[in-house]
Each structure stands twice: as structure tokens, then as C-alpha cells.
């Protein structure tokens, strides 16, 4: 399987690095402080391929903290708020779009 670091990266817009926390699988985002946060607002924003590669490399190196890191698109609102860049990432942040059975 191709390592995420070997994949070609084309970053033309704001992006973050996201993964799932190892011990419980919760969605997390890589922060500028070289850690992970479950809050998208804390995510480090990258805006070009070099920045994205560097952030991803750092995330991949933290194999104990989180698994499956990848670069995900985000949108920056007028108020500076970070928003998910597509439906998949919106669901990962907000949870399922249906009512749970309980």
C-alpha cells in the first residue's frame, strides 16, 4: 500500500491533516502545536503542497497518537472559522446525518 507521504499532493486551497485517534477512533485534527485535537477549530491550516507534506509527515510519525492521517479540504469562513470542505468531512466532524436508533 502506498504511504500517504508517497502520494502526489496537489493543494490549491486551505487544507488540514485529519486522522482517527488510536485508542478510541475519534476524529482528530493535527494542530500547529504538534498534537491532535478533536476540534476542527484547533487544526493547523496548510495552503500549499510543501506545507501539507510537512504537516502530514509529522502526523504520520505520530503513529501511536492517531491512525490513517490524510489531507482534507476545508473552507475558511468570513469570520475565520474553519469549516469542513466536503460532505464526508462534514459528517466526520458533525456525526451521522440521521437520528441514531437510541
Amino acid at each position: 500500500m502506498t504511504s500517504p507521504l508517497q502520494k502526489k499532493l496537489k493543494i490549491s486551497d486551505s487544507s488540514v491533516v485529519t486522522a482517527n485517534r488510536t485508542w478510541d477512533g475519534v476524529v482528530v485534527y493535527r494542530t500547529a502545536a504538534k498534537g491532535w485535537s478533536a476540534d476542527l477549530a484547533d487544526a493547523a491550516i496548510v495552503r500549499n503542497s510543501d506545507e501539507a507534506k510537512a504537516l502530514l509527515a509529522e502526523a504520520v510519525a505520530d503513529d501511536v497518537g492517531a491512525i490513517g492521517p490524510y489531507i482534507a479540504p476545508v473552507q475558511i469562513g468570513e469570520d475565520g472559522k474553519i469549516l469542513p470542505g466536503n460532505l464526508r468531512e462534514q459528517i466526520r466532524r458533525d456525526g451521522v446525518t440521521i437520528d441514531l436508533p437510541v
Partner: peptide
Amino acid sequence: MLRLQNGVYLQLHAY
């Protein structure tokens, strides 16, 4: 591979 052999996947929100 070890977790997969025990039925454990990683999905969007959790295992």
C-alpha cells in the same frame, strides 16, 4: 492485519 482478523475496521467516526 491483526485487528482486521478480529473484525475490527476503522470507519469515519470510530472503530
